[in-house]
Amino acid sequence: MRSTLRGRALFALAVAAVAAWSLAPFLWQAITSLKPAAEVAAVPVRYWPSVLDFSSYAQVFKARPFATYIWNSFVVGVGTTALTTALGVCAAYAFSRLGLPGGRAALIGILGLSLFPGTVLIVPLKMLATKAGLLNTRTGLVIAYTALNLPFAIWVLKAFFDRLPRDVEEAAWLDGLSRWQTLWRIVLPLSAPAVATTAILVFIFSWNEFLIAQTLVSRDAARTVPVGIAMLSGVTVYEVPWGQIAAAVVVTTLPVVAMVLAFQRRIVEGLTAGAVKG
């Protein structure tokens, strides 16, 4: 169908259009972030800076605790990813292989739970966190995010375990491995791709989360990047520092962009397994 020259050109145009549409808002932030302060809000709009100016980046790190936000997001992301993956692997293996009585019902319950929007739980969650002394802590966020991401992790990993050949595990029991050893020494090495996929997606979810972070954290010491950026503002409402915001947006999103470029395939697989299987 793309055999004719015209057809090929049209197709290339379609691909280019789709890519441009996807990247435009991000690219506009990148351009804005590189403008000298005077040109950021220039009227009419300048589409290219007269000189590349990195002072917005310097400002956002110097004048604001932006480095702390990034560090918090990173710590929370890594903690959530590690905890979710570890707990998720064990649970998914049990659901996939160990014939849990009532397992099917539990899986459907988990799925139902995960469909509720975060708003449904923030009020009690804040009370719970207050009681447990986890308000304004990264630990509190890690625990909340783990609970939120576990349904997804369990479904993706279970879908993968279901496809693994059982006979390798049976050979392992005959060789004398216990269930637990089989999981760690045989199943896990074979599932490395699925575990990696799950970890990447959970990290992205955690990095991006806003509502719970906004609810559970009100101090800079534990604040994560999305909340930090949404709160960036000037001295008055009319003085929004758009250059700095753009710089912050670029710094925050660049790691995610890099992850997508590196792991595009895994992300597609993970999303498909997580959503369609459900």
Binding site: V18, I229, V257, V260
Partner: peptide, 19 residues
């Protein structure tokens, strides 16, 4: 091309809302 298309999905909603 697929990676480019995925990028909006992967970027933080709140952050891009600022954008």
């Amino acid at each position: 091309a697929r990676a480019a298309v995925l990028i909006p999905w992967a970027l933080p909603t709140a952050v891009m809302a600022m954008a």
